[in-house]
Design a protein around this nucleic acid. Structure first.
Lengths: 301, 301
DNA sequence: ATTGTGATGTGCACTCATGAACAGAATTGC
DNA sequence: GCAATTCTGTTCATGAGTGCACATCACAAT
């Protein structure tokens, strides 16, 4: 039983037709405006009247004149037409201009790098409201959780996602001067496993430097683990031992020094990933362009 | 050029489809509610997005989630659906119940006869507003000028008008006692042409008693003419001579007497005429029934 | 792992709404 | 009064939109 016990009109096009007939007073005029044959207009009216059980028009050779019911319908349809027209211009404009919300997501560790860039973008486009969502859980673009995501690591290959190569985060091993105590640098690679290390809580991540640490550093030498980048950073600065950090972040601190020449495989590629449905919109294109131009001024490599 | 330079949406059904998709979150669910195949829903969405130039939904295997644009559309469509539903119930009710305006038209001379009947009807149906329009010009039902007309004379045969036999107005020759001066009644028919007569201004009317007067009474004996029934009535009562009057009206006055037995051909048939489009509506049926029952209590013959 | 379920998406046959042509009627013009 | 115009209304052929079937995919549960 698919019958609507609560009567709701399931032929909006017919109302639209009736509206123009009531407005113009003739079937032919309405047919011309609607771009259909006048026979179609007559059929729409007949169908609608049959459905409503009420005569909407009185037919005569000079045209159709709306009954009270028809005039009532005309007023409602008039309002509807106005609202739809406004909606259309809103939506049209929304497609070509950068307004409304713009949701960007990334892993939390990129936050200090991206925040200023996004702030810049917002100031350049006052009409847009930027929401920067970070978190270790992957925000799913296909559910509309974000317009663009900055992902790190291996290239995502989820379907319906258009992914672009973005930039490269140079990762290196750092330690504080306090820990090193004036030792000669770089530390020879064969001696590294004997150092103390600051590790990560969830090493299940497939980041290459994680795997390097798992493979080359004895478990007992990983003396502490942190679950987020900030705690790792503070532990290293406190002198607990060696640890992986992004070069751009470590270089901001005078007390941190790079202990070995970074291996190329440690580098974490960044990916700009957007949903295919939203990729072509002006808003997404604008933020992508802005992110790329910002990356050009970075000195990450 | 039939191009709409002002963008207005010319596919309301597609908006309705998109509305239900946005509301339910899945194409399949919307298809079931709408009573169409889910492929149709997909095609509607695609068409609408193409038309608006904006993505309304993000597609994924679990369903469709509305973008900002889609949510905007959903709100507008929600309001539209509510308004249409209200309209439908209003119109549905209007078809089966007697409410709103009811326009009745007749020739002016029937006004005193019909007015109390219409007043009765209004009091029996408080929801209806009765407009009683009299005038010598014929109000055209097909232009929506009236719901029901009471016509006198020969049966109207206009197309699209359903006409019913109503009642018969008995017309007879009357004169005031002052004019007669106590003569014996009835006046022999062969002496009638020698009497003085009160006539009508527009004798072009095809009423049978008009023609009788034209045919049987010498022109110079029609000593006065009036353009409306009231002036004729007053002239007769003033004693100017003989004149045709409706029996129901003349019988109200003590000073008026019937001078000859009325000829059957003088009687004026009344017709109830309605437009075919409105004839079946409850409102029209109600007033017709009321008029007929009122006629049963009349003593016109 | 594997099966099951409930989604979206697409090619193909078909039906139904549409469009073209014509007829009828009323009003307008000369 | 007669022709011209402008409507409505109906019939019939056609094409666009629809429904069906099947493929595909994602998630959940056993």
């Amino acid at each position: 039983m698919s019958a609507h016990h609560n009567m709701s009109i399931d032929a909006w096009d017919e109302i639209r037709t009736a509206y123009h007939v009531a407005r113009l007073g003739t079937v032919s005029g309405a047919a011309e405006v609607l771009g259909v044959h006048h026979a179609t207009v007559i059929r729409h009216i007949d169908s609608l009247e049959k459905r409503l059980g009420t005569k909407l028009f009185q037919r005569h050779a000079r045209g159709y004149t709306a009954t009270e019911a028809g005039q009532d319908l005309m007023q409602v349809a008039q309002a509807t037409d106005d609202q739809f027209t406004q909606l259309a211009s809103r939506l049209k404009g929304r497609g070509d201009s950068v307004t409304g919300e713009l949701v960007v997501t990334s892993i939390e560790s990129l936050s200090p790098l991206l925040s200023p860039v996004l702030a810049e973008f917002q100031m350049a486009n006052p009409g847009v409201t930027v929401r920067f969502v970070t978190g270790d859980r992957v925000f799913r673009l296909e559910y509309g959780e974000a317009h663009v995501a900055i992902r790190a690591g291996t290239a995502p290959n989820e379907p319906d996602n258009v992914v672009q190569r973005y930039s490269t985060i140079q990762i290196a091993l750092y330690a504080s001067r306090k820990y090193l105590g004036g030792r000669a640098l770089p530390i020879p690679e064969e001696e590294l496993p004997q150092e103390k290390f600051m590790g990560y809580e969830n090493m299940d991540s497939r980041a290459p430097f994680y795997r390097w640490m798992e493979d080359n550093v004895p478990r007992q030498n990983i003396v502490m683990r942190g679950s987020d980048g900030r705690s790792v950073k503070h532990a290293i600065r406190a002198g607990i031992g060696l640890g992986f950090m992004a070069s751009w972040e470590a270089s901001q601190y005078e007390d941190l020094v790079q202990v070995v020449e970074p291996k190329p495989e440690w580098a974490a590629p960044l990916w700009l990933v957007t949903h295919v449905d939203l990729h072509r919109t002006a808003k997404v294109q604008a933020i992508l362009a802005h992110l790329k131009s910002a990356a050009d001024s970075w000195t990450l490599a």
